[in-house]
Design a protein around this nucleic acid. Sequence first.
RNA 1: GGUCCCAUCGUCUAGCGGUCUAGGAUACUGGCCUCUCACGCCAGAGACACGGGUUCGAGUCCCGUUGGGACUACCA
Length: 468
Amino acid sequence: MEQIITRFAPSPTGYLHIGGARTALFNWLFARHHGGKFILRIEDTDRERSTEESVRAILDAMEWLGMDWDEGPYYQTERLDVYREYLQRLIDKGLAYYCDCSPEDVERRRQEALKAGRKPKYDGRCRDKGLGPGPGRVVRFRCPQAGTTVLNDLIKGSIEFDNAELDDLVLQRSDGFPTYNFAVVVDDVSMSVNYVIRGDDHVNNTPRQILIYQALEAPLPRFAHVPMILGQDRTRLSKRHGATSVMAYKEQGYLPEALVNYLVRLGWSYGDQEIFSREELIEKFDLDRVGASASVFDQEKLLWLNAHYIKEKPAGEIVRLLKPFLTERGYPDHGDDYLERAVATLQPRCRTLREMADAAAFYLVEDVEYDPKAAEKFLTPELAGPLKRLIETLKGLERFEEAELEKAFRRMAEDLGVKLGKIAQPVRVALTGVTASPGLFEIIDILGKETVLRRLEKALRFAEARSQ
RNA sequence: GGUCCCAUCGUCUAGCGGUCUAGGAUACUGGCCUCUCACGCCAGAGACACGGGUUCGAGUCCCGUUGGGACUACCA
């Protein structure tokens, strides 16, 4: 069997966005699943908009998502000889020709045609002029004017195009650079790419490309056009729908596993299964289960998956990932063991690392600030008595650990004739500043005697001060 | 405007003519658990866009309507 060769070919005109990442993922998974080859190619023939930073950003994002490539990255701007060679073949065969129409003229005629209700196609006036190379001249493809071109798409099925709809597209610009439709074909032909998996915004380009393959007498690859990812308003996903850059998700505290899992499931399914490890994805992914309709990007579901992976990962691993977020907030270093215990209590409560860094504050700062409402409600003057007693009890506790602490608290609540919550909530506010937190006893255990007593005493002073 | 694509709960989807009084996930609501908040568990509400065919039988096939999207460059 022939080896499967796929490629991801972004243009470096911005960051790797969500849609591009999914396309890359589908190509990567398809190649890995079939033991094929995955090529990375940078389509930088638009010299105006391509930048070095974008290339870097795309590579970083690929790496973060864990997509490795077997060949490349190739840069189209370094392959100009190849395009010229293929182009010359077309010219020699009379399948391409030079054109000296100015862009302004072409555009003007396009507008006129549109106004007159005709198709805004290039009118082919240079077709038979027999022009040679010259400044300002482009090379156009001599597109068949009759017949139909059919695309047998792996996802969309068979699509027929009337060649009369197509015009003589530019293959080489006046600056000598190839245009997208030509470069993409030459590259895929010369790199032996046999599966072209890309966004379905390319469907309408495909007949032109097929015609170029045929003109080149090159074997056709299999095409698979995957549906677009839409925003909540069902229009093409863009900045106004929120973060669309892959790396923005990293910065917001998402795990690559979550984003990969989410993105692959967007448009692809495997029965009722929602959670897939990387290995499972490689094992199970195939094109036949990719849907045909566009899907809406749902932040909430991504969040759910992220929460899932945060819960599932070993605490030590989360600590490593969380550190940059803590540093960013300027928290002092407490050592990995301490951090790991703290993180373990936060894992089931946070959906992103960013949330976790925020929630971890009380573990890391010297003294907590009270949420005014919480303090108002729970650190009351009547609390002074029980608080004093609690401080004494804790001081006398020889084993300052979760189980013992719980016993001590329950005993005290019983003595006082109140429910545990009656004293737990004030203590929680004293220790964390807020009314929602991990389990009280694990917090006390982790915080340690010294910190706990200090915060309780501060709370006591606060409560007493209110009675004045 | 033209060409092309798409159409099951709000969202992601299962469904590949009968097993669908349409399944799962998420989000939402209620309950349980419980020191709070989460997690977890249980329950609930929620969809085949519409109209014609084809067929004994249609969410599933065909056509149309409507709606949405993409493309229509010397961008990719």
